[in-house]
């Protein structure tokens, strides 16, 4: 199996100052990794490092064997301007821009990829709507469609379930499962334990450093969670709930 990600003793940060240390990860094609931790734990930093947007200060980080261009990124929808005059179709087409080039018009295969990606997230009928008129969950699905249109081998999603309605959350989870079944490696950051348990084969607990990595059954348990969050954990029917210290 090809390795999508290999991080060995990695520290990440800005201007020489580390914000996340001791990252040791291996992710194979088709695997789903959840990055779990509180706000400011370094989840986004880790994802950005996989895109080459945050420098590696120490250790070794390898992404797609050097083919970083095949990594797709799904940002949080609330970071985008909802008033921007742009159609859903054009947002998804952005996923094809690197293939199309700077000024050549889109080809038939690009338009087909866009239509298929929109169909996959269940928004084919919204293609000509303005992006900002959709609900938060639908917008998140459009951004997922954009990443799918780029045909990524590694898909990185930053808190894709934040402020997302139940219908959209189910649609996103279903599509992510399909993508990994097709061989894409996935990295999803979340602070929702239930989502991580439902979705991931591997969970990485982060808070300034990596505290644990492994299957959900080993990591989303009282001990590792307490160490990561530094608070108390209540076990409700095998479902972890965290009480702030």
């Amino acid at each position: 199996m090809t390795l999508a990600l290999r991080y060995a003793g990695v520290s990440l940060g800005y201007q020489g100052r580390a914000v996340l240390t001791d990252v040791n990860l291996e992710l194979r094609a088709g695997q789903r990794l959840a990055l779990v931790g509180p706000n400011g734990a370094g989840k986004s930093t880790l994802i950005k490092s996989m895109l080459g947007l945050v420098p590696v200060l120490r250790g070794e980080a390898e992404v797609l064997g050097g083919e970083r261009g095949r990594a797709g990124y799904v940002p949080q929808t609330d970071t985008l301007d909802a008033d921007f005059p742009i159609s859903v179709r054009r947002v998804v087409m952005m996923g094809r821009y690197r293939r199309i080039g700077w000024w050549r018009p889109a080809r038939t295969e690009d338009r087909r990829a866009v239509a298929e990606a929109l169909d996959r997230v269940g928004l084919a009928d919204r293609a000509s709507h303005r992006f900002g008129t959709l609900s938060g969950g639908q917008r998140q699905r459009v951004l997922l469609a954009r990443a799918i249109a780029a045909e990524p081998r590694l898909l990185l999603l930053d808190e894709p379930f934040n402020g997302v309605d139940v219908v959209s959350q189910e649609a996103i989870v279903r599509v992510l499962r399909e993508l990994s079944a097709d061989g894409a490696a996935l990295v999803v950051s979340t602070h929702d334990f239930a989502v991580a348990r439902e979705l991931a084969d591997l969970v990485c607990l982060l808070n300034g450093r990596q505290w644990a990595v492994g299957p959900p059954a080993e990591t989303l348990t009282a001990g590792p969670l307490r160490r990561t969050y530094g608070g108390s954990v209540v076990d409700l029917d095998n479902d972890m709930v965290l009480i702030e210290p």
């Binding site: 895109l51 947007l53 261009g69 990594a71 797709g72 990124y73 940002p75 970071t79 985008l80 301007d81 921007f84 742009i86 947002v91 952005m94 996923g95 821009y97 690197r98 951004l143 954009r146 780029a150 990185l156």
Partner: peptide
């Protein structure tokens, strides 16, 4: 529209 997405796309 999406500076982070554009940077991520290279």
């Amino acid at each position: 529209f999406d500076p982070a997405g554009a940077a991520a796309a290279g």
